[in-house]
Nucleic acid binder design. Structure first.
Length: 368
DNA sequence: CCCTCGATCAC
DNA sequence: CCTCATATCGAGGG
């Protein structure tokens, strides 16, 4: 197997950039795309903001109220998220870049991995010029800036695309991987979030270099076989994950915030019905059926609880989803008397495309 | 092996 | 002050 050339592409401040394109008046001003929860006029959080906003300290996940304070006196634009619109734009961009790679893997709405090995015959300079070509085409066709990382694997490519943003291009050749990662904070490693970072700092590991000095047995003890093994390789810039062509989604979920905290079924049911309709529609759009239906309850203290039930028969019927969800939340409230809900959600999983799918798996099982 | 549930990540 | 969507893993129970 030839040494791989993997590319990771990330559309810069995607939602906010889409909004700037839709309304060029916004350019140059702080633009903040928000998820409004609908409780009070400004309840909710920041989803994405442009760089004018980030300069003022705005970050994703920040309460809208706080963002407004940071931008007091400035002509900032706070906009509600318009997911369908961004999905349209995303789809067009993905169609463009898909043509550049053999295996191509969409990751979320604004990211993708491309395996460029065969197209570049493992040549990094060839990869660099294709990366520039891709960036140019996305800018020309969709007026979007993007950042690209090129490296020997997905792990390093992803870190590289994040390295110089916005409008960046970072190429990390195999011989440069160590130097590139060495001084980085472990938090830069995908999969290392707040919790893992905290746990690592307990054993005095904050940089990739320090992580690379830890015995694999200790990492596995600490994080389990899977994550421990991954971290051991990650510290060395090693990662074997293949770029895989997009598979079918395995779950759909919808979650929303109640207008008022409540533990009353009558208050929850209208929202439940709406969510059930939404996931059922999503199933039908995709020509899929679900074998499991679940609910998600987020309580006053923001603790998250979930209940799932597997059905006898796969369905895309809104009534089945509605009644399964009703039963699950009813049961949850019965068995958790103190529970007061802040948010509520429905998740369908165990998705199948074909109706005959079950028979095939039975056939395989029977023949083992 | 399958199911359920909570935790974590990261968008 | 605290949104929303998806994937993955480990543990526990069967």
């Amino acid at each position: 197997m030839a040494r791989r050339v993997i590319m990771h592409l990330d559309l810069d401040y995607f939602y906010a950039q889409c909004e700037e394109n839709r309304n060029p008046e916004l350019r140059g001003k702080p633009v903040i795309v928000c998820v409004y929860s609908g409780r009070t006029t400004d309840s909710g959080v920041v989803s994405t903001s442009n760089y004018e906003s980030r300069r003022a300290g705005i970050r994703a996940g920040m309460p809208i109220v706080r963002a407004k304070k940071l931008l007091e006196g400035q002509e900032a634009k706070f906009l509600p998220m318009d997911r369908p619109y961004y999905e349209d734009v995303s789809q067009r961009v993905m169609e463009i870049i898909r043509t550049y790679a053999d295996p191509f893997e969409e990751v979320g709405i604004d990211e993708a991995f491309l395996d460029m090995t065969s197209r570049t015959r493992s040549n990094y300079e060839a990869a660099r010029s294709i990366a520039l070509e891709i960036k140019t085409q996305i800018r020309t066709d969709e007026q979007l800036s993007s950042s690209i990382g090129v490296a020997p694997n997905k792990l390093v490519a992803k870190i590289a695309s994040d390295h110089q943003k916005p409008d960046g291009l970072t190429v990390v050749k195999p011989e440069d991987v160590k130097g590139f990662l060495w001084k980085m904070n472990v938090g830069k490693i995908p999969g290392v979030g707040k919790k893992v970072e905290e746990k690592l700092s307990e054993i005095n590991v904050t940089t990739v270099e320090q992580l690379s000095k830890i015995q694999p047995s200790l990492l596995i003890d600490y994080f389990g076989k899977n994550l421990g093994g991954y971290l051991y390789g990650a510290a060395r810039g090693e990662d074997d994950e293949p770029v895989k062509d997009r598979e079918q989604p395995t779950q759909f979920s919808r979650i929303a915030t109640l207008k008022q905290d409540s533990s009353e079924l009558n208050m929850i049911f209208p929202l439940l019905d709406e969510l059930a309709g939404s996931v059922a529609e999503k199933l039908k759009q995709n020509g899929m059926k679900c074998k499991s239906v679940g609910i998600i309850a987020i309580l006053l203290d923001l603790s998250i609880h979930s209940k799932t039930r597997t059905l006898d028969k796969a369905t895309d019927d809104v009534t089945v989803i509605r009644y399964s969800s009703r039963m699950l939340i009813e049961n949850f409230l019965k068995t958790t008397p103190a529970a007061t809900l802040r948010r509520f959600g429905i998740k369908v999983s165990n998705l199948n495309k074909e109706t005959g799918q079950m028979d095939i798996s039975k056939f395989i099982t029977a023949n083992k």
